[in-house]
Design a protein around this nucleic acid. Structure first.
Lengths: 247, 247
DNA sequence: CGCTAGATTGAGGTCAATCAACGGGTGTGG
DNA sequence: CCACACCCGTTGATTGACCTCAATCTAGCG
């Protein structure tokens, strides 16, 4: 019920993918029934098998969504950054979280009761279609991840990851920074830090260099061989005539 | 426009998850703009990167959804059976299929133009929420698949697959038939047929026997060690006091 | 009966994991 | 200011799981 603080963040909230095109009345109802939470770095947001009664949207910071087995091994599913929700973590049928969520830094999040969300879905169709788009996209990302895990080598997975980083930044820079610790990236790509380290050496021979946390590429097309059609659809180089996915 | 044939299958169609609770007018609009297709075994329904302008629902038979790389290797994502759709194959943003689909036997399918579906989503909220449930569930299945691929050995993956088969059948039988070729199952579990074959031998020592296409288990709990919480939620044995997931 | 596709078995190779040691930052306390 | 511990990342040596290739077996079918 900390409406005043929600008001302060209203501008950030209204433009989120989940709330695009939703009228003020619905938004008001959702926000007035939601809460803002602050968590310190490393705190747990929810655990696998807990009752999934809230949906979260990140306003500041980032969190990791992961699975773990009885041996304590972690399987990093995704890192959720500012402005994103993670609806795929909740099931619409079984009502329990199927993953764990932990903050990677100090975070500020909006916590929406699932019940409230469901009530408003009935009232505003746009909310349902927005959610559909979000869950649909995350499905695509999951499929892409499966493709990488099953059909690609460790070097190829790193190349693919770096390519996505460069496309995300959209800048003309041939140099960018790694967004997380190397061991976290390794986990996301399903390999051990040692393997990550060794694979990077192989990439060096192809004009892709990682020194400390700085990645630099020889030219704009150094990573093209790690592209696939899903990534290509977001790549500014797709217009280039040498691009495999140019059509 | 083969309405008469659609009429014949109306009973089958109306009870599908996608159409639950949708009123007759909407259904009529959807069906009158859809077509029934018959494909022979092995025919291609759509290919990766093609324009995704139709959504399909299977009325008879089954199909496989898979990715393939330039070397022709296949990565089986899922097998879609009677009554199911595969909305996750379409993107809501990029409008291209991200996977391939091919029939595993002679099939009869309903082909709905995406445009028609979108129009009716605007009119009937229930259609949107039904889709949300379907895509949400498939997200969960994808997450479960990633978990298996990354954290489990080949023997564990087979055990998990067999467990799901037994739960699906729900019967009290300790003997069931494999639903597809072993090589197809192997592909689904991301291993080679040879590895599948060798892993089965290891399962024999635990009271799980596969002779030809018949699986038989020593007792109802032989496969319990391959369970996880997502599978457990559908397992009749979860009420048993020895069940790890009983709570 | 022979043909063929699928399944099994064996031998050998490969990629990534494991285990262990080391180096370079960073922070803390004396 | 230095000594020390600690974490992260790197490097080397070895292991192991799964793949590859090839031969053989089996079941189904005309």
């Amino acid at each position: 019920m900390d409406i005043t603080e929600i008001q302060k963040n209203l501008d950030k909230l209204k433009v989120l993918q989940l709330f695009v095109g939703i009228n003020e009345v619905i938004l008001g109802n959702i926000f007035s029934n939601s809460k803002l939470l602050r968590l310190k770095k490393g705190e747990t947001l929810f655990l696998q098998d807990e009752q999934a009664d809230h949906v979260y949207i990140i306003i500041e910071g980032s969190i990791k969504i992961f699975k773990s087995n009885e041996e304590g091994e972690e399987m990093l599913l995704k890192v959720v950054k500012v402005g994103n929700s993670f609806l795929e973590a909740i099931t619409f049928s079984c009502k329990k979280y199927t993953t764990n969520a932990q903050s990677l830094e100090d975070i500020l999040i909006l916590s929406i009761p699932v019940k409230i969300l469901n009530q408003n879905i009935q009232k505003d169709n746009r909310l349902a279609t927005n959610m559909l788009t979000i869950v649909g996209n995350s499905s695509q990302t999951l499929i892409a991840k499966i493709e990488q895990l099953t059909l690609k080598t460790s070097v190829q997975r790193i190349g693919w990851f770096l390519l996505r980083l460069f496309i995300e930044k959209k800048g003309k820079d041939k140099t960018i920074e790694l967004p997380y610790d190397k061991s976290l990236i390794a986990s996301y790509l399903n390999m051990k830090p040692e393997t990550f380290s060794r694979s990077i050496k192989q990439l060096k021979e192809q004009g892709i260099d990682i020194a400390h946390n700085t990645i630099s590429i020889k030219d704009d097309f150094a990573l093209c061989e790690y592209c696939n059609s899903y990534v290509a659809s977001k790549c500014p180089n797709i217009i280039h005539q040498d691009c495999r996915h140019n059509n």
